[in-house]
Simulated assay, not measured.
Amino acid sequence: MDLRTLRYFIAVLEAGSLSRAAGSLYVAQPALTAQIKKLEAELGARLFDRSHAGVTPTPAGLQLYEDARRLLSDADAVRERIQRLPQGPEGSVTVAAPFLLASLLLGPVLAALKSSHPRIRVFVLDDLSLMVRKAMLDRRADVGILVDTPQLDGLRCTPLACESIFVCGHDADGTVAALLRTRADGAEPEIDFAQAARLPLVLQSRRFSIRQTVEEAASRLGVGLNVVHEHDSARVIRSLYQCGAGFTFTPACSLADSAHPQRKDWVVARVAAPQLQRCYTLATAADRVVDAATQVVIDTLVQETRKLVLAGLWQARLPD
């Protein structure tokens, strides 16, 4: 006895005829008759009285009708409950990321997660790299993208990507263009750090990671930085170098935000001798088990990073 046979039985009883039930079920009448006889044999009871006018249920048939309807109703309820269960991981995950990288990476990540795992809710904390690290140490984020931090006590860190740092700005008189070296691979030209340091620079203060990287390189080479404007606001810095007030150092992830396509004298050059780079690691709490939802977010961050790099949308190097 199975659910399909019970549905056949109910259809015969409600139709009052094997032929009418067979038509509504799209089943051949001999096959339906065989199913009813098999059911009667299994139960050891006659379920219908048959006549030329059709079939009428016996007392056993009436009892089975009540029980069968209840069983089928329960089976439908079970199916609905199972189908309503969450499909895949579910939960909330907070990601902390440096704001320059967030504008490039987090859009594709959130869009991919919305499509593949709609029951995972992602909250983003985009801030200075120093504040991203603090958010992880304070347990305010489940996943963090740290800058130039391969390891940190209390956190489990894995490499994500490394990118070059560029100089960009308006070269109104062509002075900077004369300092550039073309590359054999056709990528952006290069400029030596010592020459870039002498340009009029628009930089954020020393508490920002890019400024710290530039200061360390200058100290190693024994050269000074020609800083003409210093502001903490990224928007103010962008406004300054885009209006021609100076040049700035920027990571590859923000080149699209830094560009000024309306100006033909716009220069973008990779810093060399030494080459400046910025490396990112994915961090989670070392003493906390990564749950299924968080692991999905981590995997998506890695996958979307790889897609951006391989598509040439992010000039970065993936870990070996």
Rank of each mutant, 00 (worst) to 15 (best):
S92V: 14
V95N: 09
V27K: 08
P59T: 08
A31Q: 13
L313T: 06
G144A: 11
F208K: 10
V227A: 07
H117R: 00
L106H: 04
P261L: 04
F247R: 04
T281V: 14
F208A: 04
S115H: 06
T281I: 08
A31P: 04
S205Y: 12
T149D: 06
V202G: 02
M136Q: 01
G88I: 03
A97Y: 08
A41I: 04
L18S: 09
H229Q: 12
R181T: 08
M131A: 14
T248I: 10
F123T: 13
M131S: 15
R121T: 13
L47N: 01
H231N: 12
G23S: 12
R181M: 05
V296I: 06
S258R: 07
L301A: 03
P30E: 07
E190Q: 12
D142T: 01
A285Q: 15
A31F: 07
T158D: 13
D74I: 11
A256C: 14
T300G: 07
R84F: 07
R220F: 02
P86G: 00
R317Y: 05
D2N: 15
D74G: 04
D287F: 12
P57A: 15
A252H: 05
A256G: 09
D185T: 04
L199M: 06
L155N: 08
G61Q: 11
Q315I: 05
R139H: 14
T94I: 05
L203R: 14
V12Y: 05
T58Q: 12
L221E: 02
A161L: 13
N226D: 06
L318P: 13
D171N: 01
D173T: 00
V271M: 09
D173A: 00
A141M: 08
G312T: 05
P274H: 05
V167W: 01
V223E: 00
A75Y: 15
A60G: 09
G88D: 02
E163D: 07
L62T: 13
H260C: 06
G107A: 04
K38T: 10
G244D: 01
L43T: 00
R4F: 06
E215L: 09
E14T: 10
Y65V: 13
A285S: 12
D291I: 08
A135Y: 11
D138Y: 08
S24A: 14
Q151E: 15
V122D: 02
A112P: 02
R50G: 03
L310T: 06
L146N: 07
C162H: 09
V214G: 02
I165P: 00
L282S: 04
